[in-house]
């Protein structure tokens, strides 16, 4: 089996250094250590971005762009030990901006992008349900979609989501309940 990579940055021994240590090293001029942070968190939020944007390709662009922006603004990361929470907010803004940009253009194409990743051993009915739900998710507002993705795809509790987004649990629940009703309506129309 062969593993390869152009650019030479991705193949590297992982370190146990904390996020704060790496951020401080990068700010001190050791730019290449930023790759450790990218390695560490690129996949953690890949699924969030893919479900928010409706396709893995769009997610890849968003995650890449968010990491580049985070690098540019690294000096503004007030607590380097909490880099990941700070980075998530940059990625979130990038996803919301992308959704506003593409909302009127191609949400259905985006949904098809996710559907092409269906696993071979899944029955057609499950795949169809997933496709229908992904279409319905893309019809929610970005705020509704986000709370649904964080709770039901990423598995976070309301309390964890509230801390991450600096909001209240009752406000999140209201958003989520609207999302449930809208999804129900959309799925009924689909069937």
């Amino acid at each position: 089996m062969l593993f390869s990579g152009g650019g030479g940055y991705w193949l590297r021994a992982e370190t146990d250094a904390g996020d704060g240590d790496i951020v401080r090293a990068v700010l001190a001029g050791d730019r290449e250590r930023y790759a450790e942070l990218v390695d560490r968190y690129r996949d953690r939020y890949a699924r969030y971005a893919a479900r928010m944007l409706g396709s893995t390709d769009a997610a890849e662009d968003a995650v890449q762009d968010a990491f580049v922006r985070a690098f540019d603004q690294l000096a503004q990361c007030q607590d380097p030990n909490k880099f990941v929470g700070w980075f998530f907010l940059i990625l979130r803004n990038r996803c919301f901006a992308e959704q506003r940009r593409t909302r009127t253009t191609a949400p259905l194409e985006a949904a098809d992008g996710v559907a092409t990743q269906e696993r071979a051993d899944e029955v057609a009915e499950t795949v169809e349900r997933r496709r229908a739900l992904q279409h319905a998710l893309l019809d929610l507002t970005p705020e509704q979609r986000e709370v649904f993705v964080l709770k039901h795809v990423e598995g976070l509790s309301y309390q964890e989501i509230a801390e991450r987004l600096s909001t209240s649990v009752p406000s999140l629940k209201m958003r989520m309940h609207r999302a449930y009703d809208r999804l129900r309506e959309q799925l009924r129309e689909h069937t």
Partner: peptide, 18 residues
């Protein structure tokens, strides 16, 4: 019907650094 399949983006590291 929620799709929780993990998503991996291995090329992102070198794309960012490049």
């Amino acid at each position: 019907a929620v799709d929780r399949t993990p998503v991996s983006l291995p090329a992102v590291t070198w794309r960012v650094m490049a």
